[in-house]
Design a protein around this nucleic acid. Sequence first.
DNA 1: TATAGAAAAATTGTTGAACAATCTTGACAG
DNA 2: CTGTCAAGATTGTTCAACAATTTTTCTATA
Lengths: 220, 220
Amino acid sequence: MIEADAAGTLAQRLAERIRDKLIAGELRPGQKLSEAALASTLDVSRNSLREAFRLLTKEGLLRHEPNRGVFVATPSMASIIDIYRVRRVLECRALEQAYPKHPAVIRMRTSVERANKAREDGDWSSVGSANMAFHAAIVDLADSSRLNAFYAHIAAELRLSFGLLPDPEMLHAPYVDLNANILAMLEAGKPKEAAAALDAYLAQSERTVLAAFARIAEPA
Amino acid sequence: MIEADAAGTLAQRLAERIRDKLIAGELRPGQKLSEAALASTLDVSRNSLREAFRLLTKEGLLRHEPNRGVFVATPSMASIIDIYRVRRVLECRALEQAYPKHPAVIRMRTSVERANKAREDGDWSSVGSANMAFHAAIVDLADSSRLNAFYAHIAAELRLSFGLLPDPEMLHAPYVDLNANILAMLEAGKPKEAAAALDAYLAQSERTVLAAFARIAEPA
DNA sequence: TATAGAAAAATTGTTGAACAATCTTGACAG
DNA sequence: CTGTCAAGATTGTTCAACAATTTTTCTATA
């Protein structure tokens, strides 16, 4: 893996670079992205950058105000609540209706194992990645490429919110065991119970994120 | 309402114009959209048109093959099946978990009434519109702007498939009464039953569409 | 005749400059 | 202090050009 991101058109590559900066926290929410400045920084033309902006705006990562510019999307209580509603619809339904021998179940299991190992090593960042992979695998149970793509956007947007929080990785840590439980129920042929557990998981996670967000949003 | 579509940037307006042509059937699936030709037809620059292409590609209405061009998305059995999977996840879950006094219920009712009236008048096109509105209202029960936006894309893509079929509006006609039943169950405080009925509805609709599609796809 | 391959043409990818339209800033008058 | 208006900066849009890639055309050869 020597190559960086040499795929497709320049706009796509640009979108990827900016997306990385976004989830890496290099670009702060609400920050304005000047066309001229960014174009010269990234050493591309304004036209190409604008195409990338259109891409990222459609993904919900940027906000485009005509004649005013594009800004990094700013997470809010409302957006976090909205995102968790989406997660409940997609994940719970996919899990509830899942075929217990679906290939994605294997990915769920490997994700749990990776998370366990990472937790032992104290590698919280990897715990977070494994957790995200676990939930992406759940959505994949529904066998729809459109749902997968949509969930990828939602997950990226949620990561934007996480980036604002202190100790973002720690948010995932408590849920490793819950994931294992959910997986066990599914493999035991009890998808309904697994879905119920997932619903509880999401409710708890949502409360935690909202609380942490409220703490930093209004320190008044 | 004299104004046509004077909102936002040129790329957005272009996207809307092309989207309209797409669902109106003026642009055929698989057809290549030449940048130079379309730009001169629509009397805009290639750059602006390219921005619009990026928008519509993200919506799933166009397909972008780097260095080869953009094409009108071509419906297939696989895409129809995928879309109906999405519909089941979004609509059934939203209905099942719905609060019976949610404002969207009113829109569901007016949609049913509009469909009934249109059917009496033999206005099948309006029956179709009312039917689409009914299902959009169902998704709105989940109270998520992201789900609403996603469903709008899915609906537009499905309409692309309908456009290929003979008597596309007739596809909606048989379902007016089923919608009324679903609404009645929801208003009677039985969301679970309503969701089950909707699931059956979608299964039947999917079969019909697939059968019609198969008939025109391989007339060998 | 068929076909592989090279040359030519057409199309997409990308850039830079230019100007119009709109927004932002800041000075100034009341 | 506040509202107005001009100046400056930024986005919106177009155009022309060239590079990179694909498609088409044509030819030489088996």
